[in-house]
Simulated assay, not measured.
Amino acid sequence: MFPDDTSTPLYYPVSTALNGPGERQSSGCTPTGRHYVRAMVGGGLPLNTVFIARRPTGEVYSERLAHQFPERDWILSRIIWLCGLELGKNRGSGVDSFRRFIYIHGTPDTEPMGVPRSHGCIRMRNTDVAELYDRVWPGIPVTIR
Rank of each mutant, 00 (worst) to 15 (best):
P56A: 05
I104K: 02
I80Q: 06
R72V: 14
V14F: 08
L85M: 14
G84R: 04
H67L: 15
E86Q: 12
V37Y: 01
C29T: 12
T107A: 15
R34Q: 12
T107V: 11
D109C: 03
G28V: 04
E86T: 06
D109Y: 06
T57P: 12
V95S: 02
G92D: 02
V41W: 12
V37S: 05
P31A: 04
S77T: 15
E71A: 15
F69C: 06
G58K: 06
L87P: 00
P21L: 10
R64K: 12
E71L: 05
A39P: 10
G58W: 01
S27N: 05
Q68F: 05
S77Y: 09
P70W: 10
D96V: 05
M40W: 15
S93T: 09
L85R: 14
E63W: 04
K89N: 11
I102H: 03
E23D: 01
P108K: 05
I52Y: 13
I52K: 14
C29I: 00
I104H: 02
P56E: 07
L87K: 08
G28Q: 04
I75L: 14
H105L: 08
L65Q: 10
Q68P: 00
F98E: 12
G28F: 05
S93C: 11
R38E: 13
Y12S: 11
G33P: 02
S62F: 04
F98D: 11
R55P: 13
N19D: 09
L47H: 05
Y36Q: 06
R64W: 11
I75H: 11
L47A: 11
G22D: 02
V14Q: 07
A17V: 07
H67Y: 14
S97G: 03
Y12G: 00
T49K: 13
G22R: 06
R72W: 05
E63M: 07
S26Y: 04
V50I: 01
V60A: 11
T107M: 13
R99L: 13
H35Q: 09
V95R: 02
Q25A: 02
S15L: 03
V41P: 12
T32L: 13
R91C: 04
L76R: 10
N48Q: 07
E59G: 01
S97M: 02
A17M: 12
E59R: 03
V95D: 01
E23I: 00
T57G: 02
A39C: 07
V60Y: 06
G22E: 04
P21N: 09
P108R: 00
G20S: 11
P31C: 09
T16W: 07
N19W: 09
W81S: 15
T16S: 04
L65K: 05
G33Y: 03
T30L: 01
S26I: 00
N19P: 02
P13I: 09
G58L: 03
I79F: 08
I104S: 02
T107L: 02
M40G: 09
Y36H: 14
E59Y: 05
L47Y: 09
D109R: 01
I52L: 15
I80W: 02
P56D: 07
C29W: 01
V37F: 13
L76W: 09
G106C: 07
S15Y: 15
D109H: 03
S26E: 13
H105S: 10
R72Q: 15
R54G: 15
S93L: 14
A39T: 14
G92N: 07
A66Q: 12
I75W: 06
E86N: 12
R55Y: 15
V14G: 02
C83A: 13
T49C: 06
